[in-house]
Amino acid sequence: MEPRQLLRNMVRIRCAEEVIADVYRDEQQMRTPVHFSIGQEATAVGVCAALRREDVVYSGHRCHAHYLAKGGDLRAMVAEFYGRESGCASGRGGSVHLTDQEAGFAASSAILGEMISVATGAAWAFAREGAPRVAATFFGDGASEEGVFHESLNFAALHRLPVIFVCENNQYALGSPVDARQPPGTSITGRARGYGIRAEQVDGNDVQAVYEAAHKAALHCREGNGPYFLELDTYRWREHVGPHWDHELGVRPRDEVESWIERCPIRRTTQALRATDPGIEDAVAAWDREFRAEVREAIALAKASPFPRVEDLLSGTYEN
């Protein structure tokens, strides 16, 4: 994918999340806990750009960016936040249980690390079919502390499954920094290598670097060489859950947050393209207007859409 397109995709996700965050805060009508990826867009966009439509992506609670990057329907996501029948999970899942099977966004779920195993299972099914499909799963540094992470990596490596493990190391689990949770002198990449898995640590705010690494990973999986592990260093700007900033509350040092805002993946890509593409800043400004309008339209549409019928409360619990 061209850098310009990668940038455009990041701008779209940024606009979607910023508009949603404002409306969420001001209106209090989206009654579902939201976990924004603002500042982390390069990981979602870079990885998903390297995948095919038939490849599947799984995610955790912080999943909006992954859903949109894989081509998930924006209107259906917004409708889901509003609990509407037209939501991507018909109002039964909310912001942490997104799905768009047509786009290959298989599922997200909110228990830390569990989707690592589910993606491994999907890859197991693909390997058995001999299908050249790849499963990718996004999770954070916190999830790498779960037992399910280790058990899944062990199984995937043992059976050489086509799964890309994408660890977005944003350095925090809620307000707890990674060095309070993991021993010094070790790394998540190192632990993946301990299972004999090809693993790479990449600047997660450099969308081009992420894209190239993910491209290599997908090829590795597709050629039957087993799983691939990417640790992408990045940073979440907002609070763990909700639309607010948390450095104002002393959760994280202001300097630290500001230093990562300096490393904004959108700004970096824009600056990198300026030399060869002098019109890029105007283009970004135009995209910004276009996407904010698109999101506002999706919000208006969702609000005008019907809620699920209470008579259907039980439907979907069992097969019909």
């Binding site: 899942g93 979907g316 097969e319």
Partner: peptide, 8 residues
């Protein structure tokens, strides 16, 4: 099945 809105 339920939490993904009767999809799959």
């Amino acid at each position: 099945r339920y939490m993904y809105g009767n999809r799959g």
